[in-house]
């Protein structure tokens, strides 16, 4: 086995923030610079889905959920964010061989950049929720203070998951298809068009361990029900986020040594 040699870290700690912000900025600019409609594109997808789901579930299935379009958005936006952030994080290492093999940038930053780039789109879409809140005249309460915390936990969770799948994707090429399939299944396990109250009680406590479902529930609690998320829900999110960050970091650290040879 190779003995680890002494060497300075690839980048000073204080410069990590700079490179992350430059890479996130690059993603954002590249995505919007050549589009005539610009940022509007990131609103088009949720708007279409909301219109569709609202039609199907208020005109055909006659759902009793109030403010149905807003309800759908509170589920759809976190779900969309999760699937996109996870998928781009998964391919972030294998799609940037130049940054892995030719420069000494810490590779663990790549999935982080993917998650943060998607967070910018998330902010744009959250404005859509706020616009609907204003439109319906729903009061904004102090419970909104929970939103940064629960969304922060979600980011930690996705980063941990992205560390694991991005490094696995370098070694085994099928990983991105597994991610896509899981995302498809997940759509039905998140209360987007049905309500949590319809979930049979014996499944509820397990259901809450799904961090995407937990995030949607907490967002609905705050925005539609004017109350704080239940503490047990926040604890479950914290636990899952922590476990995934540790496990993802461990897997990434183990597989990182193979990146140069495999890419």
């Amino acid at each position: 086995m190779a003995r680890p040699g002494a060497r300075q870290p690839a980048m000073r700690r204080s410069n990590l923030g700079f490179v992350v912000s430059e890479l996130v900025l690059k993603d954002f600019k590249v995505r919007y610079r050549n589009m005539s409609l610009g940022v509007f594109w990131s609103l088009l997808n949720p708007l279409t889905m909301v219109a569709l789901l609202t039609f199907v579930f208020t005109k055909i299935f006659r759902s009793q959920i109030p403010y149905y379009p807003l309800y759908v958005l509170c589920g759809l936006i976190p779900y969309n964010f999760f699937t996109l952030a996870w998928l781009t994080a998964t391919t972030s290492v294998s799609e940037n061989p130049a940054l892995v093999k030719k420069v000494r940038m810490p590779t663990a930053l790549l999935p982080l950049v993917s998650v943060l780039s998607n967070t910018i789109h998330l902010f744009i879409q959250l404005l859509l929720i706020l616009a609907l809140v204003a439109w319906y005249g729903i009061p904004v309460t102090w419970h909104y203070a929970w939103l940064p915390l629960i969304w922060g936990l979600e980011l930690v969770f996705i980063y941990g998951l992205g560390l694991a799948t991005s490094s696995l994707h370098v070694v085994v090429r099928d990983v991105r298809y597994v991610v896509e399939s899981v995302n498809l299944v997940l759509f039905w396990l998140v209360p987007i068009f049905y309500s949590f109250a319809m979930v049979p009680p014996e499944f509820r406590s397990l259901y809450e361990f799904n961090p995407v479902a937990a995030l949607v529930l907490a967002t609905q609690n705050v925005i539609l029900e004017h109350r704080s998320p239940r503490p047990v829900l926040v604890w479950k999110m914290t636990l899952v986020a922590g476990v995934f960050l540790l496990a993802g970091g461990w897997i990434f650290a183990r597989l990182r040594k193979r990146f140069y040879r495999y890419l």
């Binding site: 190779a2 040699g5 060497r7 300075q8 892995v100 093999k101 030719k102 040594k257 140069y260």
Partner: peptide, 18 residues
Amino acid sequence: GLLEPDEGAVQVDGRLST
């Protein structure tokens, strides 16, 4: 430091650029 050798030790002093 992009590739870890299978055997042997590597030591580089100071700031490294590529």
